[in-house]
Amino acid sequence: MYQSIAWYATLFFVFLIALAFSFVYGESRKLREYGPIQEKGYKIRKFYFLGLVAIMGFASAISLSKLPYHNQHALAKEDGKIVDVTGMQFSWQLSDENFVAGEPIKFRVTSKDVTHGFGLYDTHMQLIAQTQAMPDYTNMVTITFDKPGTYKILCLEYCSTGHHLMIKDIVVKPKGGK
């Protein structure tokens, strides 16, 4: 969902910027005194500035209430399943590989050697969650696999020449199924 929002928001705002630049380019061959242009420009800029601040404030208010860190904290209170994940050049090791759809999972992610990126991909190869896998640190990320199927863990932090080989399948079984 966020990928699509990011994509369409970028297209929309870049289109608006392109429109502004095109308009100014179109008007650039005319010649008028700069004083009145500045005066009017500064007035418009006040609204432009306030508009941008409003958009950024709105985006902050909405997005900061849904932090993945919050989610992690909330689920830690429930008895979600805990799975320890260790990244190493160039594979993933999981303490438990039995997953059932609908069950909240708390991944405790670390690394044996260098920094890796723990990226969880859904059955359509969309990235659904991630955290860094670092030596000496444990990062926790929670996820509930909604549907059964084969999910994947991909390394998302460059970790040397076998980086792209760090793919691990996670098979999520249907609830109540075998």
Partner: peptide, 19 residues
């Protein structure tokens, strides 16, 4: 700056960082 700012949003970064 537009996609940069969008990527600096934590919830977006959670599914777009290092892509």
């Amino acid at each position: 700056a537009v996609p940069a700012i969008i990527d600096a949003t934590i919830v977006v970064n959670h599914v777009m960082h290092n892509t």
